[in-house]
Design a protein around this nucleic acid. Sequence first.
RNA 1: CCCCUCGUAGCUUAAUGGAUAAAGCAGGACUCUUCUAAGGUCUUGAUGGGGGUUCGAUUCCCUCCGAGGGGACCA
Length: 563
Amino acid sequence: MIKRWLKNKIQEYYQDTAFDVLTPPDDKMGDYSINLAFVLAKKNGTSPIEEGQKIVEKFKADREFSDRFGEINFVNPGFVNLFLSEKFIQEQLTKVYKKRDSYGTSKIGEGKTVIIEYGGTNIAKPMHVGHLRSTIIGDGLANVYEMLGYKVVRWNYIGDWGTQFGNLIAAYKLWGNEKELKKKPIQTMLNLYVRFHDELKNNPDLRSRGREELKKLEEGDAEDRKLWEMFREYSLDEFDKIFQQLDIKFDITKGESGYEMVIGETVEFIEQKGILKKSEGADIIELEGLPPTLIRKSDGASLYITRDIASLKERIEEYKPEKILYVVANQQALHFEQLFAVWRMLGFSGTDLIHVKFGMVLGEDGKKLATREGKGIPLQELIDKIVALAGKVVREKNPKLSEKEADEISKAVGIGALKYNDLKQHPRTDIAFDWSAMLDFSGNSGPYLQYTYARLSSILAKAGNRKAGNPALLVEAEEQRVAKRLLEFPDSVEKCSEFYSLNGLALYLYELSNDANRFYESVRILGDMNIERINARLMLIETVAVVLGRGLKILGIGSLPRI
RNA sequence: CCCCUCGUAGCUUAAUGGAUAAAGCAGGACUCUUCUAAGGUCUUGAUGGGGGUUCGAUUCCCUCCGAGGGGACCA
């Protein structure tokens, strides 16, 4: 907010000159810092010192600068530092307090639609920790775009078609039975899947059996169709349960099978554009700078990308989105490069297609967790474990809670820990799954933020009725620090949409909590002789609580008045 | 063999080309007659190796080493 103002303002003085406005980590150096002196020195053949001094003089003479910044200095080796004035911070705090319930929202997305694809669950396989990343990153980004005024379509593109279902049906016919399936649907399907791949090593004939079943399925064979529907139903029920626990919602749950019917016309559409080629009996598209992509197998069956093209075409025609975000693992980078390249070759444009990639979740040994070998950590197990631990901690810390309240808090804390642990990290890197870090509720963790929220809420609850405070009474360093931090919230939200990641917002909320806790420890708010000062401080912490709560909500994490 | 990620403290991670590389965990020392100690304060400790571009490189380029992912009938 202030940064942008500063940038625009300076641009008036120094047009066509590149510079950065920084927010230095240490307040000894200033609240904002610009590196213009270097650039000008180089441009004019002078020294940075000379230029820096000139800039300072210029800024000091300008009322708009001097109103905002109490102090403007030039420091070697070439930075002009600006300190926000106490008065300006106090004025801003009043403004933020007034609009606290909508603070950070904007209209930059008004009239625009963004489709966000996340979740990416595969029928007949249990959700594992990898799905968690897609789900919570996607959900968080959806929340961000909503705050920025976009119309958001939350889309769970499920993997419910393709070769693996042929395999599954074949396996079921060989070794499965309905009784067992009913009792433990997902586990049974997974066992069949794993067994199929195990036995395939010694019995390659299985592969053709799987292909046959897929072919029958695609041709509408009644028995296979019924089995597929059953597998799908059981799986979706299971996913719903998990999404509910994670507080994740979708507008659309439509996967690959939803495009099976339009494959023919999609291929025809591609053919009309004249980019389809025959190669070794299959239909392919040759791409520039990328390996060719297979559109139709030699036996005529469709492939993953074929269905993705069909879906993309539909999405664009139906929603005319400004952007489509695919929140899908790194491993599929090539697939999306190919998809986007095909899309351009088909003559589409005007929509930003973005593959929001994220790294894998590795095992504690740093190795891949393969579902095929049955090594993946099932998400349900993880949720149960973390909520159970949260329950233990909650009851230990706060024994007076009722059972019902303790349960509710345990869920919020456990799920909060789980989500925050992932979101605080940069999405692109692989993360090593670390039970002890995941289950640690201290330090930079979800529960720490929730704890801060609860502490502040507790004061507000005890304070009872009060009048609006006068922020001019907030002169202590700890108070100023918190107030300044509040001003960074809108920037932090906007950056999430710029970088397609939420770790910046997570860090911001952690720092806000940090500042708030320092303030909390530095003074005793209630019980002050000065009623006016109590009111001013309550106003400050109320703003922090609201901003913190809203920030957590973007991350999909609940905040409770007591934990 | 080719392409893409990545390599930061004992461990897990931060850092739009900026200042003295930031945290958490683990280790050490303090801190509850006071609004929630899941807290606060202090402390030990790091950019894989070698070049280059730049006033300035964790960040950009080259190279070497190491890890992971991907590379036509899987998704």
